[in-house]
Structure formats: structure tokens, C-alpha cells
Amino acid sequence: MTKLWPALLAAALLSGCAAPTATPPPAAPVPAAPAAGTVTWQYMRSTWHEARQPGLGISHRYQSRVGWIDVYLYDMNQGHWQAGVDDPRFEAQFQSSVEEIRLAGARGFYAEVEVGPISDVRIEGQDFRRVSLRIVHAVTRKAYESFTFLTARNGRLLKYRMSFEAPAPADVDAIAREFIERNLRSGPDMPRAAHPLLDT
């Protein structure tokens, strides 16, 4: 019997090393989505739209590794706008911003346009109306997740149009909110460049 111990011990050790067949192999690691606070937005340029149509104001473009953002400041030549989303003219202006995208699709610039839910959100003490859109570019066939945030501030309309190549980062809402918070604190009129290039 004592001669059998080494063989039995070896068999027990080998059976303990064998992986159970019922356990699936570990999943491949999934790259983590960029967390809020890790996305750096670079100011690219400013575009003056008044020459094309009075009332369209100015926009500032920011870009990062996850997408781009355009910040629009304008009044539509309609005088002072009541702060937030309560101006009687606000809903029509918001719907016009959504229709701009639909019209671009109808003209063939986009192959697909899907309008998502509309909601009111509060960011840094400012009320915004928000809509999400899914867009497929007609030429490149690339899909984008787009978000529009509109409000009235300091007598003018303030719009953030954000575009992320699909699939958008899992924490895209946190990324969008963080950009808007910082932009409101620093002042949407002041892009992060000493001398912005004005395109006419």
C-alpha cells in the first residue's frame, strides 16, 4: 500500500491542475470608455455667421479624441431672449434646430437621421432643452451620436451641438455635462484661445 502513495499523490495533483470544462474562458478585456475629467477639448476656430445671415451670430469649434462640439451664440435678430427655456419663442426655435438636421437628411447630406427623446435638464444653474440624434453620413457612411442642448442666456440663444462617432463613449452624458459646466464658468463668449481665427 505504501508503494501506491506516490502514484496516488501524483494523480491527485494532476487532477487538481486540470481546468474544469464547465467554466468558460475569461472574456477579452474591453477598453474603458473615457471618464469625465479625462477628455481634453481643444479650441479650433471661431466662425462669424452674421455676414451670411444677420441674427446667426458666432460659433466656436472644439475638438477632442472622442468627437467635436460647436458652441453657437445668436439672437435671430429677435431682441432680448428670456433666460432658460421659458421664452414664448423658445419652443419654435428648438424645433427649428431639430428640423435643420432633418432637412440636411432630406437634401442628401445624411443617409439617416433618427431623432431621440427630448428632455429638459439643468446644468450649472442653467435650464437647457436637450435632444439626441443618430446620424449616418451619406458619403462616408459613418454613424454619429449627436446631442443638441439649447437655452437662452444673457439675452441670447446659446446652443451646444455635440457629435461623437458611434458607438459613443458609455459616459457621454457625463462628458457633455462636464464640457457645458466648464464652458459656462469660463464664458461661452471667450473661446480658449488668445486670438481666435474669425472665418467669414
Rank of each mutant, 00 (worst) to 15 (best):
Trp5Gly: 01
Gly16Thr: 03
Cys17Thr: 02
Ala18His: 10
Pro20Ser: 15
Thr21Phe: 11
Thr21Cys: 08
Ala22Glu: 15
Ala22Gly: 07
Thr23Leu: 15
Ala27Glu: 15
Ala27Leu: 14
Ala27Val: 09
Ala35His: 11
Gly37Trp: 06
Gly37Asp: 05
Thr38Leu: 09
Val39Leu: 09
Thr40Arg: 10
Thr40Glu: 01
Met44Lys: 08
Thr47Gly: 06
Ala51Ile: 11
Ala51Asn: 14
Gln53Asp: 06
Leu56His: 10
Tyr62Pro: 00
Gln63Val: 09
Arg65Gln: 14
Arg65Ser: 14
Val66Arg: 00
Leu73Ser: 08
Asp75Val: 01
Met76Gln: 12
Met76Lys: 12
Met76Cys: 02
Asn77Leu: 12
Gln78Thr: 00
Gly79Asp: 07
His80Ile: 04
Gln82Lys: 11
Val85Leu: 14
Val85Phe: 08
Val85Glu: 11
Asp86Met: 06
Phe90Lys: 05
Phe90Trp: 06
Gln93Cys: 02
Phe94Gln: 03
Gln95Trp: 12
Gln95Asn: 11
Arg102Gln: 13
Ala104Val: 05
Gly105Phe: 03
Ala106Glu: 15
Tyr110Ser: 05
Glu114Asp: 15
Ile118Cys: 04
Arg122Tyr: 04
Arg122Gln: 13
Glu124His: 07
Gly125Arg: 02
Gln126Ile: 10
Arg129Val: 00
His137Lys: 04
Phe147Asp: 07
Thr148Asn: 09
Leu150Cys: 03
Leu150Ala: 09
Ala152Leu: 04
Gly155Ala: 05
Arg156Phe: 13
Lys159Cys: 08
Arg161Ser: 10
Ser163Asn: 08
Phe164Ser: 01
Phe164Leu: 07
Val172Thr: 01
Ile175Trp: 00
Ala176Phe: 03
Ala176Trp: 00
Phe179Thr: 07
Arg182Val: 01
Arg185Ser: 14
Asp189Leu: 14
Met190Val: 10
Met190Gln: 15
Met190Thr: 09
Pro191Ile: 09
Arg192Trp: 08
Ala194Trp: 05
Leu197Ile: 08
Leu197Trp: 11
Asp199Tyr: 12
